[in-house]
Design a binder for these strands. Structure first.
Lengths: 341, 341
DNA sequence: CCACGTTGCTAATGCGTATTAACGCCGTAA
DNA sequence: TTACGGCGTTAATACGCATTAGCAACGTGG
């Protein structure tokens, strides 16, 4: 029972046992080198003292001597634990935590990063990024300048989600949006749709651009017509789409799809008999709908997991691919049907 | 631009600037003592180098020297990011993160704690708890031995959820289950219920015992009959309750309530006309029901927030109450009605 | 009795930082 | 000229541990 307030140290154990601090350290680490040996009785005496005091090595000092933290940093531009329930990021974190646990690392959440201009910034006066051995970056859009700086400074990191080069290749684990989107386009074409629409930005964050790219390429290859409409107002958008003879709507944002489907039903258009819908990924905002949308699922948990895996290999110096694209799982759903004549 | 893999140190900055490591440290910490001063130009040169390299003090070394690193540890006996479920713990974490951000601390999730006998243990070989300045403990049940040891070792911590003394008072921010439960009992009594049941363990974790305590006391005070039944099988339990003439069922676990209500309807008993239900808190397991349960809400987010607040005050040495009970918000709901004649 | 290996341990050092005591310098007062 | 009090900076040290080099004592073979 430690009487004082101070932590018990190896030095204390050493004094109690009449040996040196070195000996205590050796006993503690169960070193069995031929180089350094401890007599069984001495070892036993030390162990007794350790048991009696309940001594535990101070991890801080241990890491200092080791050069490593075994912390993995997690940086998100949004709060890690979002208050709003949509909770798009949650599955990523599940995967991250699972893998971190497996490789025996703790997670350091950079919750203290200050918010400037409505966004958290990586670099600021009291940059704490280096606190971790390496870190995982999460967010729909990462500032290219900050990425470039990370690369330039050689800070080990991995992005969850594909990123364009930023003064060099960015290590990432992303979702293969182009392939997944193209597959849906082919499916629609196979069901007789000849004019289909992409509703959304189709640019900006890589994840949007990637979907759009897959869409455009597949439309061309299938020899059908693809139109692109930015989402503004449900009624407006629906007007445009119907005017152009669109029979299948591919939505970048699940929530927009829900709103548009509602608009369709308001116009007495049945989904999918009169109008088909394809959702290009999971909801990033809360969306309420009774429809079982056709589309695909982003392998979020797996992405988180593999991001840690890649980071770990970077830290170990183990070579390996630092850019991975994971396939999205198609969801059959009930909103894509044969095109109306 | 640091070419090597090594972390930039104060020594590096010092060499770059032609000053001593001490000077760098002083500049960094913005010490303004009369005792130790740095010329403005020198300070500026050092700051430039710091900015250029993106240097950040190694928290490990800092902590070793300083006994402080602005991490708050978060220890949960379950995974922090639960894979499935309705996520009972999530709101706590939201509160924890919000407060941590406000006081400028990062969160260290102890994901590396090994699982022994199906539970994570705080103390083990490579105890990393002290990496954090202090920590928040989260979980339905915390091992009293481990709590006692934390207290004995003087490790600063705060529990989310009330805990019994463990070789000393445990700092906590809990929910006032006794009062909240008692209020519901009074409400039921006021509606004419004379025989009501507590379904659940009523013991074990403090949160269960507290509910039971409130129930028992309020029942006695209201002069009505209270029966206690452990949940086993829905049909069995319902048999027992009806046999004893129970007209209102208080469930410790929301999910058990959902199952029992279903059983009631199977028997053509209408809720709440024929049988009333009160849920003593939010679902800890996913439960599907259409019923809007009467009961109360656990102030989870607020508990998380205040736990960090208390921890912070402990660390600052600022006195203050280290045991807080927060009121639960009553939920009117639609499952408690006038007792059937 | 010396050379030499083995055994059991310790002194010394480094990890990166914060802190304290002290040092050289310059200007001013004596 | 000497004494002296700011001023700006640094050398030295501590923090708790792991590690390396090395030391003393004790055989054992020649």
């Amino acid at each position: 029972m430690p009487s004082s307030n101070r932590r018990v140290t190896q030095q204390d154990i050493a004094r109690m046992t009449g040996v040196s601090q070195t000996t205590v350290s050796i006993v503690l680490n169960e070193r069995d080198d031929a180089a350094v040996r401890i007599a069984p009785e001495t070892r036993e005496r030390v162990l007794q003292a350790i048991r009696k005091t309940g001594y535990v090595a101070d991890p801080i000092a241990r890491r200092l001597a080791d050069q490593r933290n075994r912390f993995l940093g997690v940086f998100t531009y949004e709060p890690v634990f979002p208050a709003g329930l949509g909770d798009f990021y949650h599955p990523f974190l599940v995967g991250i935590e699972e893998c971190a646990e497996r490789i025996g690392c703790d997670l350091l959440l950079f919750t203290s990063a200050p918010v400037v201009d409505g966004r958290r910034r990586i670099f600021h006066q009291d940059n704490r990024l280096r606190l971790a051995d390496g870190c995982i970056l999460l967010g729909r859009w990462l500032d290219p300048d900050e990425l470039a700086r990370l690369i330039a400074e050689g800070q080990p990191f991995v992005s969850v989600g594909r990123r364009d080069d930023a003064g060099g290749p960015v290590p990432y684990v992303g979702a293969d949006y182009p392939s997944a989107t193209a597959a849906q386009v082919r499916a629609a074409a196979g069901l007789g749709h000849t004019t289909i629409a992409y509703v959304g930005e189709g640019a900006g964050p890589e994840s949007h651009a990637d979907r759009m790219r897959g869409f455009t390429a597949a439309v061309a290859q299938a020899g059908i017509t693809g139109v692109h409409v930015r989402f503004t107002d449900a009624a407006d958008v629906m007007d445009q789409l119907l005017e152009r003879g669109v029979t299948a709507i591919f939505v970048e944002e699940f929530a927009d799809g829900a709103v548009l489907a509602e608009e369709a039903e308001r116009r007495a258009l049945h989904v999918p008999r009169d109008l088909s819908f394809v959702a290009l990924g999971d909801p990033t905002r809360p969306a309420s709908t009774d429809l079982d949308f056709t589309g695909y699922r982003i392998p979020r948990r797996e992405m988180g997991w593999q991001a840690v895996e890649v980071l770990s290999s970077i830290l170990d110096g183990t070579g390996g691919d630092t850019q991975r694209l994971l396939p999205c799982e198609p969801v059959a759903g009930a909103t894509l049907a044969v095109a109306r004549a």
